[in-house]
């Protein structure tokens, strides 16, 4: 009996710890959700005490002054940065995965370094450059910075996908009368697409959520994270938590729906 109990525990304790750690990851999200329904103004103490429930903030998520503008600005910046990083990064990963050339090691280092550099260093050094060059800080300096730090992640993601691609598939396409361009469009690109999509999602979320680099290069432009930061100093409007919760729920649902074909395929 005791032996059985020990086996039962031995089989499950790792999973149990894992689930507790997951819980730790989710607790703050639960708090964000709870705070989004709290009936209190932005200057009330930021706690869950004396909790009163209200739908009011959800009815008007952009109700706090400036929050809507900041949100859409961040979306625009993230979209542009993603587009730029995905195009530049995909080209680079094709060069690295498909060709041998002089300067390959140097290129790999140049791609690795931004990932090994703290954001505060990247942000401050870009600021130093922009100031020295007399560039007006604002929307475009943010986009430039975001493309820069997303680029490396795109290259790593797409390159991994390319490396896992069977070269025989392209040979088969050429053997079946597809010229280089057709081979690329009909075979290579569709097969690399999941990698490119993953890279784009990663870029978008990195850019949308970036505070540190943006903080150095935004001038007077206020992105959504900048707005949250400012609010944390002056008083947090509940709408921030509404948007935070909504983003979480929507993303979670989108990813879950994306998983449905996978689940079905496994059954088939």
């Amino acid at each position: 009996m005791l032996h059985r109990l020990r086996r039962w525990v031995a089989d499950r304790w790792v999973m149990a710890i894992g689930l507790i750690v997951l819980l730790y990851l989710f607790v703050p999200i639960g708090v964000v959700a709870a705070m989004s329904f709290r009936d209190a103004g932005r200057n009330a103490p930021y706690t869950l005490e004396n909790y009163k429930f209200t739908w009011a903030h959800w009815a008007d998520p952009f109700g706090a002054a400036g929050i809507g503008h900041a949100f859409w600005l961040s979306i625009a910046i993230a979209a542009l940065a993603t587009l730029g990083a995905v195009i530049l990064g995909t080209l680079m990963s094709f060069a690295l995965a498909r060709h041998s050339f002089r300067g390959r090691a140097a290129t790999n280092t140049l791609i690795f370094l931004p990932m090994a550099t703290p954001e505060i260093v990247m942000g401050s050094s870009l600021l130093a450059l922009f100031v020295a060059a007399g560039v007006q800080l604002g929307f475009w300096t943010i986009v430039i910075a975001h493309v820069m730090f997303c680029l490396s992640f795109v290259v790593v993601t797409v390159k991994a996908r390319l490396a896992g691609l069977d070269p025989r598939l392209q040979e088969a396409a050429m053997d079946l009368y597809a010229n280089e361009v057709q081979t690329f469009l009909r075979v290579t690109l569709p097969l690399v697409m999941p990698g490119i999509v993953a890279a784009a999602l990663l870029s978008f979320s990195l850019s949308f959520d970036d505070f540190i680099v943006t903080n150095f290069n935004s001038g007077s432009v206020v992105t959504f994270p900048m707005f949250v930061w400012g609010a944390s100093q002056r008083g947090i409007p509940p709408q921030i938590n509404v948007i935070g919760t909504a983003m979480f729920v929507i993303s979670f649902l989108v990813v879950l729906i994306g998983q449905i074909p996978n689940l079905r395929r496994r059954k088939a």
């Binding site: 025989r168 079946l176 097969l191």
Partner: peptide
């Protein structure tokens, strides 16, 4: 000329 590849190389997509 056409080829039947080792491990087939069928286009998975």
């Amino acid at each position: 000329v056409n080829t039947v590849f080792q491990s087939y190389a069928l286009f998975p997509h």
